[in-house]
C-alpha cells in the first residue's frame, strides 16, 4: 500500500513537472507573460519565471503540510517568517522613525538654531521625549529593571482606555437609536407603496427589533431565567444567533475559498499557463 502510494505521488510529481516544462516553453512566446512582466516592471523574462517558480514551490511547500510536516515546508516557513519580520521592521525604521520622527526634529532644530522657529518647531523637538519613552520598552530584557518597561506600556494603556470612551459612545449611540424602527409605516413614510409592501416593511422592521432585543436578553445574566418573558425571549434570541452563526460560517468558508482559488489561479495561470491570466 505504501509502495502504491509512493508510486502514485511520483506519477503526480512527474505530471506536474511535465506540465511545468511545457508551461515554460509556452511562456517564452506568450504575449500575456510579456504584458505581465511589463505590469510588474521586472528586469526580464528570466527573473519573472524564477520568481514564479519560487512562488509556486513555496505554495506547494505550504500545501504539503496537509499531508505531513516535512523539511521542505519548514524551510519555506522560516523563510516567510524572516521576510515578514524584516519587512515590517524596515518599513517602521524608514517610514516612521526616520521620515516621520527624526527628519522633522532635525528640521526644527535647524530652525531653532537659525532663530527662525515657530511654536510647532518647539512641539516637534519635544518629540525627542517620545523616543526616550519608546526606548523604555527594551528594559523588558533586564530582570532588575523590568518594571521600567511598564511605563511605556502604561502610557499606551492609559491612552487606549481614555480613547475607548469616545470610540464606544460614537459607535454605540447610533446603533441604539437605529434599533427604533418604524414597525407600522404610513403612506407618508412610503409614498406610492401599496399596503402589502408597507406591511412587509413593517414586518421586516419588527423582526429586526425583536431580534435585537431577544439576543440582548439571551446575554443578560444579571437576573435569573425564571421569568417567562425572559425565558421565551432568550429562546428566540438563540434562534437568531444560530442563523447569524450559520451566516458567519458561510462567509468564513467563502473567504477561505477565495484565497485558495486565488492560489490555484496563480498556479494554473501564471506557473503552468493552463488557464487565462
Amino acid at each position: 500500500m505504501q509502495k502504491t502510494s509512493k508510486i502514485f505521488w511520483l506519477l503526480i510529481a512527474a505530471l506536474v513537472l511535465i506540465l511545468a516544462a511545457w508551461g515554460e516553453v509556452k511562456a517564452l512566446h506568450s504575449p500575456a507573460v510579456t504584458a505581465r512582466i511589463a505590469d510588474l516592471e521586472l528586469p526580464g523574462h528570466f527573473i519573472y519565471r524564477l520568481q514564479t517558480w519560487v512562488a509556486a514551490l513555496s505554495c506547494i511547500a505550504v500545501y504539503s503540510f496537509l499531508f505531513k510536516e516535512n523539511p521542505f515546508y519548514r524551510f519555506f516557513e522560516h523563510a516567510l517568517l524572516g521576510c515578514a519580520t524584516g519587512y515590517s521592521c524596515a518599513v517602521v525604521m524608514r517610514q516612521n522613525l526616520y521620515s516621520q520622527w527624526l527628519v522633522p526634529i532635525k528640521k526644527s532644530i535647524v530652525n531653532v538654531m537659525a532663530s527662525n522657529y515657530t511654536r510647532e518647531d518647539i512641539a516637534t523637538i519635544a518629540l525627542i521625549f517620545a523616543g526616550v519613552i519608546g526606548l523604555l520598552w527594551y528594559f523588558q530584557y533586564s530582570k532588575k529593571y523590568f518594571w521600567v518597561s511598564r511605563i511605556a506600556m502604561c502610557i499606551s494603556l492609559g491612552a487606549g482606555a481614555g480613547l475607548a470612551f469616545k470610540d464606544t459612545f460614537n459607535q454605540l449611540i447610533p446603533q441604539i437609536t437605529g434599533t427604533f424602527k418604524n414597525i407600522c409605516p404610513s403612506e407618508y413614510a412610503m409614498p406610492g407603496a401599496p399596503l402589502i409592501d408597507r406591511f412587509y416593511a413593517g414586518c421586516e422592521n419588527a423582526i429586526f427589533v425583536i431580534g435585537t432585543v431577544s439576543v440582548l436578553m439571551y446575554f443578560f445574566f444579571a437576573f435569573g431565567n425564571k421569568n417567562a418573558i425572559v425565558k421565551g425571549s432568550s429562546k428566540i434570541g438563540r434562534w437568531y444567533l444560530m442563523i447569524a452563526l450559520g451566516a458567519f460560517f458561510g462567509n468564513t468558508f467563502m473567504s477561505r475559498l477565495s484565497a485558495l482559488i486565488e492560489r490555484v489561479h496563480f498556479l494554473m495561470a501564471e506557473w503552468l499557463l493552463l488557464s487565462q491570466m
Binding site: L40, S58, V62, F253, E262
Partner: peptide
C-alpha cells in the same frame, strides 16, 4: 529587484497559501 523578488516569491504567495490551507480543514 531582490526586495521585489523576496516579497513576490516568498512572502505574498506563502501568506496567501497559509490562509487558504484552512479551507481543506474546514
Amino acid at each position: 529587484t531582490t526586495f521585489d523578488f523576496l516579497f513576490n516569491a516568498i512572502q505574498a504567495p506563502m501568506g496567501s497559501a497559509v490562509f487558504s490551507m484552512i479551507t481543506f480543514y474546514m
